[in-house]
Amino acid sequence: MYDLALVLSKGGDEVTQNSARAVELYEDAIKEHDDVDAMVDLGVLLEKGAEGVERNVSRAVELYERAIDRSGDVSAMYYLGLLLDDGAEEVERNVVWATGLFERAIREGHHGGAMCQLAFVMMNGREGVLRDEVRAAKLFERAILEHSDVHAITGLAVLLSHGAAGVEKNVVRAIELYERAIDEAQDAFAMVELARLLQDDRYWVRPNAARAAKLLERAVKEHDDVEAMVQLGEMLVQGTGGVRTNAARAAQLYERAIEKCHDRDAMLKLACLLRDGADGVSRDAARAAKLFQAGMNGRDGGEAMEILGRLVQDAAGRR
């Protein structure tokens, strides 16, 4: 019953996905056998929703709590912790409770996802949880060692590339970690962050803009990554590190980022292109003004002034 539900919920191998039927089978497995795995998988399905299955986050929470009560299921602890850490419809955010669940999932089940998520909480600090980058680094290291967790690999790379209280900056190790995440998981975040590092002249006598551009192209092509679109667009406008300028392609990337998720940085950068015009990009002051207004909307005064200054500087550099 549970196995069939699992197959139907995912589909594949000539089995048509049928999430609604999967829900029925999970419910039967819970009712007849008190099946903990069915509780957890049904919780995940209801939390996200699917074709023919309406989202029901409060029911998902009930199922996770029941699985924890019945057998101390560490996956249920992890999923419930994620919900509480972020907060959701009908679920009040409770970072302290979430942290406790992650700690328990690590202690009782060596759960790699919980290690990684707890590390992110410690890395930034949240309501009721003190920031502790040293503990975060140790959790990332453990998740890498025990689970080869790609989020832990990139999380530790971020910590090492910037340095933190008690964590020594190590850009060389950070690059190695990003390279590993790309090699092992084709991770888009690692591609984008490695591209940033390769362009930073604080670390290199000769930054490798060509490799950075290739990484960003790959993140766009393989993952449709918005941050990669924006970064690559900027490189193509500025001609960073000898990369050949291509304002028309940059405009296309910005348009794509805006279309995909209304990215405000893409709006501002496209606004500058349309305001000034460029090879292959016609001036359009009216559209530029609308994009600029949309891109600045919701930003606080300090951030707005910083962005304005950067845009003016970029425009001056192109003239």
Rank of each mutant, 00 (worst) to 15 (best):
D37P: 02
D37V: 02
D37M: 13
A38I: 04
V40D: 06
V40N: 05
D41S: 11
D41I: 11
L42A: 04
G43C: 09
K48T: 14
G49H: 10
G49F: 08
E51V: 01
V53M: 06
V53F: 05
R55F: 03
N56C: 01
V57N: 03
V57P: 08
S58M: 08
R59Q: 13
A60I: 12
A60L: 14
E62R: 09
E62K: 03
L63F: 06
Y64M: 02
E65Y: 08
E65H: 07
R66A: 08
R66S: 03
A67H: 01
I68H: 02
D69W: 10
D69H: 11
R70Q: 14
S71W: 10
G72S: 02
D73C: 00
V74T: 14
V74C: 03
V74K: 09
S75M: 10
S75N: 15
A76S: 03
Y78H: 10
Y78E: 00
Y79C: 10
Y79I: 09
Y79S: 10
L80P: 01
L80V: 02
G81H: 02
G81N: 05
L82C: 14
L82G: 14
L83P: 02
L84S: 00
D86N: 15
D86T: 15
E90W: 05
E90S: 15
E90M: 11
E92P: 12
E92C: 08
R93Q: 15
N94I: 12
V95H: 04
V95N: 01
V95D: 09
W97G: 00
A98G: 12
A98L: 08
A98C: 01
T99D: 09
G100C: 07
G100R: 02
L101V: 13
R104C: 11
R104Y: 09
A105P: 13
A105S: 07
I106E: 03
G109N: 07
G112K: 00
G113L: 05
A114N: 01
C116A: 10
C116K: 01
C116Q: 13
Q117T: 12
Q117S: 15
L118P: 05
A119C: 09
M123L: 12
N124R: 15
N124W: 11
G125N: 06
R126L: 14
R126Q: 14
G128V: 05
G128W: 04
V129C: 07
V129R: 08
L130I: 07
